[in-house]
Amino acid sequence: MQAFKQSSIVLLVVLLSATACRKDPPPTFVLNEVELYPSGAGKTKLKSNEQYVAILFTNLFQAALSPNDIFDVNNCIESIGDKELAREVIISNFMNDPDVLLPTIEEMQADPDQFIQDTYVRFLVRRPSEAERTYLRNTIETDPYMTPELIYFSFALSNEYMYY
């Protein structure tokens, strides 16, 4: 009897030690990739003519405009009183260049949401709000004349594009 008790106690100890709390494995931390963009509210500084032209050219051609050309385009803007009109004419000239890089209408219509997202990021360096996305998607879907070129034109001529 005494031996049975001792055996039971030993067995109990063994069982308890086998089923006791285990130590958690050490935690592993990872970083998710999140692209951060400023909001429109943070844009308070007006671009100079030179900055505007350099960025516009990069956005449209994915290449850099030479410093001499930037100087010459600035002269053109200075020589016209209505600066918005001057920018409009300069954009029209760039759009007439065969090297301008524009998505096709088919690409835009195949995935309007992606096109909208890309356009906002490219020109305004931010994501569209849901209202902006909806408005632009409706425009793309309902206006038969709306092309990527005209959308790029609007963005390049917008007031927000003049600020950083």
């Binding site: 429109g40 844009k43 902006e132 408005y135 709306m146 959308i151 609007s154 001529l157 007031n159």
Partner: peptide
């Protein structure tokens, strides 16, 4: 579209 963008901004 430009006016829409301007109004938002």
């Amino acid at each position: 579209l430009k006016y829409f963008l301007d109004n938002t901004f």
